[in-house]
Nucleic acid binder design. Structure first.
Length: 547
RNA sequence: AGGAGCGUAGCUCAAUCGGUAGAGCAUCGGCCUUUUAAGCCGCAGGUUCAGGGUUCGAGUCCCUGCGCUCCUACCA
């Protein structure tokens, strides 16, 4: 339109003034690329191979033969500058050709020869040479206009440079996408943790290790599902939106359903629904469950997190121990292949964890005695020891805290710390009072502290998950629920409730069963040597930006 | 929730006792056909997180707010 010049739209002008100068330069480069007749944002491209595949496709003999033939032709021309094309030695080029795409992470412009380092999920750097002589004109023009962070597609034969680097000597180069945002510093990278989590997409290509962890996580989930499939477990999906959040003691998130005008909670655990499926007759079920708990954030807690829960009819907590050990070991083997470490010595911080040896087993009772020096049911000693160590033995209002909580406080603070963090360890037979969904051990019912058929698995100083012989007697279950509810204060009672339908399900009859829960995020932390849960979650919870 | 620390150029970081806000990389202009964090020459780039206070003078000291990090607490 010719009358465009009459008036510059004010809005457009002020918008472009608001953009950072570095972005404006990149937008100008994008226009220049379009002016070359290229599509700055690319299009469907078939037959791409990844950068690792391209790198390993190099054929040294073919490359050498090509170099020798070129040398011979040069020599022939030197010997006889008048030589005709047909008299020149034959061209030899059996070099494998590759067609690859990647993000430009480094560029070295030597004038008529531009070197690019591309990155993709498979390889941190793969070199492309774009020469004025050998690349098509548009491609060479593109190479001169690229910004760090752009995505390009290159095609050409593989050769080796004088300095020994396998390189795609491009004869075509086309754009695939434009990076309008100035990327982080090219060797220090992006270290600002806040920006890494908020702009994960940027973190992922700048710091390839981030992407590797997420890819490993996917591999581990595949290994998990394959393992459970072989054991005959069926994957199911139970409600995330629940009228009452049960199966654990945690503060839920609340929401509201308009159609039925009812309050709903996001699940804190899938347990009570999975057991209903056992009642219905499914023999072995599992769910990879996203759970939501309205509690604090720290390096091993995110408000939404992933657990594996599985239930096996006619199993018990011993069955679950065998399954858990096999599953964790197999996932560790998967991780060891991916990371190149050895299953008997997987690094986690300063530790080297052995997943190959049979996991340790110790009872709650033994661990307590070894750590504290007296029996866990010596309640007087326990209270005395707790006082000595400055643990709370009375609640705010002055009433004494129940014996079992005093004992367990000692266990968690003193005994758990004595577990060797480099040896996966099952702690067996917990006090029944701490496990309301677990079948009590019949022969301990008259002891000072009755026990339940429950274990907890500890690895690397973290609690990875519990398993039970499930309580399937509706009367005992109901009594335990009522006992739990009696002990809660007013605040807690707003979200603790009695799941009558679950009791009804047990009345219909649930087969004896074993059940298992594993913290998937923590397991991925261990197997990817990640220090915090945020490093195994692509988008961890962050406070929204104030502006 | 409590304690400690941090916030400076697009990024990574400096700035002595409170005294002219700097460097490297990236960007921009010039040169370069075997570079590897390419190199050489030149230019430009700042509301020092926001707001207030003390002071002749504040990136620096004080207060408030925002955000992040670490520790502790909470978390079956």
């Amino acid at each position: 339109m010719s009358d465009q010049t009459t008036e510059t739209p004010n809005t457009e002008q002020s918008e472009s003034q608001d953009l950072h100068r570095l972005e404006l330069q990149r937008r100008a480069n994008r226009d220049d690329i379009a002016a070359l007749g290229l599509l700055p944002y690319g299009q469907r491209t078939d037959d791409l191979i990844n950068l690792e595949q391209a790198h390993s496709a190099y054929d040294q003999a073919a490359d050498q033969a090509n170099k020798d033939a070129n040398q011979a032709r040069k020599q022939a021309k030197r010997d006889n500058p008048e030589i005709t094309e047909s008299d020149l030695p034959e061209l030899v080029d059996d070099r494998p050709r590759v067609k690859v795409a990647g993000r430009v992470v480094l560029a070295r412009d030597n004038g008529k020869l531009v070197w690019l380092n591309l990155r993709d999920h498979s390889r941190d750097a793969f070199q492309i040479a774009v020469s004025k002589r050998d690349c098509d004109e548009q491609g060479f023009g593109l190479a001169k206009k690229l910004d760090l962070g752009d995505i390009v597609i290159a095609e050409g034969p593989l050769t080796m440079t004088n300095t020994g680097e396998v390189t795609c000597w491009a004869d075509t180069l086309v754009p695939a996408s434009k990076c309008l945002v100035p990327p982080p510093e090219k060797h220090a990278g992006l270290t600002d943790t806040e920006m890494r989590y908020r702009q994960r997409y940027l973190d992922m290509w700048v710091n390839p290790e981030t992407t590797r962890v997420f890819m490993l996580r996917g591999e581990l989930m595949k290994a998990l599902r394959s393992n459970l499939d072989r054991l005959g477990f069926v994957e199911v999906d139970t409600p995330v939106l629940q009228t009452q959040a049960g199966g654990a003691a945690a503060r839920p998130f609340f929401t509201h359903m308009n159609a039925l005008d009812i309050p709903l909670s996001l699940r804190i655990a899938p347990e009570l629904y999975l057991k209903r499926l056992l009642v219905g007759g499914m023999p072995r079920v599992f769910e990879v469950s996203r759970n939501f708990r309205n509690e604090g954030l720290d390096k091993s807690h995110n408000p939404e997190f992933t657990s594996l829960e599985l239930y096996q009819a006619f199993g018990n907590y011993e069955t679950m121990r065998e399954i858990a050990e096999g599953l964790v070991r197999e996932m560790a083997q998967t991780a060891s292949h991916a990371t190149g470490s050895s299953v008997d010595s997987m690094p986690f911080g300063d530790l080297n964890i052995n997943y190959e040896a049979p996991f340790e087993r110790v009872t709650y009772k033994e661990l307590f005695k070894n750590a504290l020096g007296f029996e866990f049911d010596d309640l007087d000693r326990a209270r005395e020891e707790a006082t000595k160590r400055g643990f709370k033995t009375k609640s705010e209002d002055g009433t004494p805290i129940a014996d079992i909580f005093v004992v367990n406080e000692l266990f968690e603070e003193v005994a758990e710390a004595t577990i060797d963090p480099s040896k996966p360890t099952f702690v067996l037979d917990y006090p029944a009072a701490l496990s309301p969904l677990t079948r009590p051990k019949a022969d301990t019912m008259n002891d000072t502290i009755p026990l339940a058929e429950r274990w907890d698995l500890f690895i690397g100083g973290m609690e990875i998950g519990p398993a039970y012989t499930e309580l399937n007697d509706p009367d005992i279950q109901e009594a335990k629920f009522r006992e739990q509810l009696a002990g809660v204060d007013d605040e807690e009672s707003t979200f603790r409730n009695f799941d009558e339908d679950f009791i009804n399900a047990l009345k219909v009859g649930m087969p004896p069963a074993g059940g298992l829960g594993l913290g998937i995020d923590r397991l991925v932390m261990l197997l990817s040597n990640s220090r915090t849960i945020r490093d195994v979650l692509p988008f961890p919870m962050m406070r929204p930006r104030a502006d």
